[in-house]
Design a protein around this nucleic acid. Structure first.
Lengths: 157, 157
DNA sequence: TATGAAAGGCCGTGAAC
DNA sequence: GTTCACGGCCTTTCATA
């Protein structure tokens, strides 16, 4: 799918104000509401826009501790990876998980209420995952940047 | 602010379908559209709901490379941290940045089109940041989990 | 204090151009 | 892509538990 300048403006607008009305979006993009709706629909169908989310105030929700966890497996077999991944998607406290290149380890981001809560998550969720050889936890003190997508998204293509 | 069971259901609904109408949300929550709109407004005002975002298809946008970057500074002074942070928020390709505990380093998540694109970002953006002593890049092969908030959010309080 | 029902205005949707 | 018209949704008000 090819994206023109108006598509990119619309994407940017929706990435910042995901609940904006078509009229509002039309003003930002410089198009009629109908045209905006059509383009939005097309982008959704193409998967360029995968969905919409409310952004939650983690502080207000009592989630003060973000923990970066590096998990190394005891095996590099396909089965071990599959079993681990099938298990970690069911961990409620895990918000992100990447399979990393160069070594069979995963980078996992966990959100907890506090350090004590993380200790519990570590014992009850992370250490029970299959094929885990080592777990290294690093605490984040502060989040400096949190963007849905690169700022340069409007210059991607 | 105290959240009851209905608030948490509403938060969950909006975290999954951020653009759902009040009527739709009312059905999920089990309330009238009017009550839903009121509670939603209250949650927004309290900062529990900080905003709404479109979730973009990174593959469809041509952003195939997610890079986890660990950046160590040459100084632990307040000024050095401030200068670094003020600079990194202007890096277009940086989507997340955490100040980590136990050592003066940052964990940065960068999204690029491909490895070649990342090489350019590394040279033109990351290596020019102030007070940078070391940059360690790890490539993510695959994203296994990506959630806005812990699944257990409905049992937070 | 918070909910639910009804009225009015705005928005989202489709057809025609 | 725009205009226009219609149906539905969002919003406000108000009575109620």
């Amino acid at each position: 799918m090819s994206l023109d300048r108006l598509d990119l403006k619309l994407i940017d607008a929706l990435a910042q104000a995901g609940r904006a009305s078509h009229v509002e979006l039309a003003e930002r993009v410089g198009l009629s509401p109908t045209a905006v709706a059509r383009r939005q629909r097309t982008l959704e169908d193409a998967g360029v826009i995968a969905g919409y989310r409310a952004v939650l105030g983690v502080r207000e929700l009592g989630l003060a501790a973000t923990v970066i966890v590096r998990i190394t497996l005891d095996s590099q077999s396909e089965d071990a990876l599959s079993a681990f991944e099938a298990a970690i998607v069911t961990c409620p406290s895990v918000v992100r998980c990447f399979l990393m290149a160069g070594g069979d380890d995963y980078l996992v981001i966990v959100m907890a209420r506090d350090i004590e809560d993380y200790e519990h998550i570590h014992k009850s969720q992370l250490s029970r995952l299959p094929h885990v050889a080592r777990i290294q936890s690093s605490f984040a003190l502060r989040e400096v940047v949190d963007r849905p997508v690169p700022m340069g998204a409007t210059r991607l293509r």
